[in-house]
Nucleic acid binder design. Sequence first.
DNA 1: CATATAAGGGATAATATTATCCCCAGAAGA
DNA 2: TCTTCTGGGGATAATATTATCCCTTATATG
Lengths: 121, 121
Amino acid sequence: MYEKKIPLPLECGLMMTREILGGKWKPNLLLAISVGISRPSQLHREIPQSTKRVLNLQLKELEEFEMIEKKVYHQLPPKVEYRLTERGKSLMPLLQQMNEWGEKNRPFIKSIILKRTKALD
Amino acid sequence: MYEKKIPLPLECGLMMTREILGGKWKPNLLLAISVGISRPSQLHREIPQSTKRVLNLQLKELEEFEMIEKKVYHQLPPKVEYRLTERGKSLMPLLQQMNEWGEKNRPFIKSIILKRTKALD
DNA sequence: CATATAAGGGATAATATTATCCCCAGAAGA
DNA sequence: TCTTCTGGGGATAATATTATCCCTTATATG
């Protein structure tokens, strides 16, 4: 996320998508924003496993890549809203498929993860 | 990839998909295997930016999650072939979408990445 | 004999990514 | 006054992931 010393192949579509969706919470953020959860505090409540700090970092990157837009209302208390750009919206089918595939296969994947953690004692 | 100390939300479909496709070369490996590039050496030639070592690690994980199957021919020189399982095949539409979206948006994403690296001097 | 190919992996370094902690501002409500 | 809510981020620790290096086995080829 910060600087990359080992340049990644810029000629590969898969890598490009990875660059956008690779962050741990980015897919969740995009999906949440797409359904109208637009303010930072709401997003954090939606994804409480994470931290404001980290969410901010990932939001900033999504903004850098113009997947989302940020509207700042200069008020007190401050108010910020994110929304998807057209480019961001074009990711929705992909994200939905990711989510669906994951849901369908969740029991199976989960069981394997649990086996692994048990194998560690 | 090795051990995870911070447990990830097992109830989220997106996270499950991430667990499978999160490795740097896993999507490429799966796509390559799907088009018949089945032997480790072939795969490495297909993805020369990586290393045998790393590819092996990622292949092993894909196997653990039963996305691919490994056939070992006990010969000399050794011969190994990977192929997709049914579960692995079910990932193909997703991978193709990832690839297509990435290809479409590659020029744009690339330009932003390049701006960032230039901004570092 | 030197080199290549096949597949694999231990040990360790380098990098990248996330998490944690604690701070800031200003206003409203109990 | 003490707490809560808003949004934000510096500094640093902890973890996770990839990369690098080098060695093994056995056959075939120049």
